[in-house]
């Protein structure tokens, strides 16, 4: 198992290198010249060239890339072009907020999704099942920025239950977490339902019944653990989608997280900040996938580690 984890960690290295290269190249291709932008309006050509030289932007791209990777490996992602603060420092301030949001959302995704899925599966074709599946369909279909605004409109503006925007308390977390987690919860609910329905038809469930076990033991002990195997994969993928979703949700709820940081950085052509932010987000994504693999293996020991 330990060997498996180590091997998987080693496998992440080429993935991360690839991500860094893509991010780096895309930013090179984006129209707009950071040197011009930074030098300010009305700067002479000379000043612009000087800024370009200071930032090392006049060197060959390949050199710039390796230089970047070399420094990034030591935790140095450069300095923000906007305020000259180290990129990593800035990210480290924003990252915990986004992680909090992501964790709260994934909790909603997993808990809500699984409970709804189990109810649906055990009471197939009942009113509860049909209602859950309709709500789940809505959950998948509604765009999160619209859904977030509607939540703000009803719960914050009209009912005054939750704050409109910002971050810091549990109250602040609830609406953004629901906005971000709803789509995932819907997908998890559908997945849990179909997986559970598949599992209860299996022979070992019949064996469990023939043993004289109670129905809830059959469902939760013998069924659920098997049914969760495909659900874990979906949850893992959802976490990736969630990181992307934070960009929108943070903008809607005016939360100063990593997503918003990246958006702002793109808007101001703050190259090092965009690269650093995307790279850190990718690292988190890659390690989440790793965690899913390990969990998957824990739940399904039939998987061959080699």
């Amino acid at each position: 198992m330990l060997l498996f984890i180590i091997r998987r960690i080693l496998q992440t290295i080429p993935v991360l290198l690839g991500v860094s290269l893509v991010v780096f190249l895309i930013m090179q291709m984006v129209p707009g010249d950071p040197a011009t932008l930074l030098a300010g309006e009305g700067a002479t050509k000379q000043t612009i060239e000087m800024v370009r030289h200071q930032l090392g932007l006049d060197r060959p791209i390949i050199y710039q890339y390796f230089d970047y990777v070399f420094h990034a490996m030591q935790g140095d992602f450069g300095e923000s072009l906007r305020n000259n603060r180290p990129v990593l420092d800035e990210i480290m301030v924003r990252l915990p907020i986004t992680l909090e949001l992501a964790l709260a959302s994934i909790m909603i995704t997993v808990v809500l999704g699984m409970i709804a899925g189990i109810i649906s599966a055990t009471k197939q074709y009942s009113i509860a099942d049909i209602s859950i599946m309709i709500i789940a369909l809505l959950g998948i279909s509604l765009p999160s920025f619209w859904f977030g605004l509607m939540l703000i409109y009803f719960f914050s503006v009209n009912l005054h239950i939750f704050p409109v925007a910002g971050w810091g308390t549990i109250q602040h977390m609830i609406l953004p977490a629901i906005t971000l987690g709803a789509g995932g919860a819907a997908i998890v609910a559908r997945m849990t339902r179909s997986s559970m329905l598949e599992v209860v038809r299996q022979d070992y469930i019949r064996t469990a019944r023939a043993k004289g076990l109670k129905e809830h033991v059959i469902i939760y002990k013998h069924g659920l653990k098997n049914a969760l195997i495909p659900v874990i994969t979906v949850v893992g993928l959802q976490f990736g989608a969630l990181l992307g979703g934070t960009v929108l949700t943070e903008s809607v709820f005016a939360i100063n997280g990593l997503g918003r940081l990246i958006v702002d950085a793109i808007r101001t052509r703050d190259l090092p900040m965009v690269q650093g932010g995307v790279l850190i987000a990718s690292v988190i994504f890659v390690f989440m996938n790793l965690a899913v693999d390990v969990l998957y293996r824990y739940f399904n020991k039939r998987i061959d580690l080699n």
Binding site: D203, Y204, A210, G212
Partner: peptide, 23 residues
Amino acid sequence: RSIRGNEISMIFQEPMTSLNPVY
């Protein structure tokens, strides 16, 4: 339930799938 597996028990055709794979 108190009779199943206790006073009357059963074995099935498919030993490959009749046991729960995760226990």
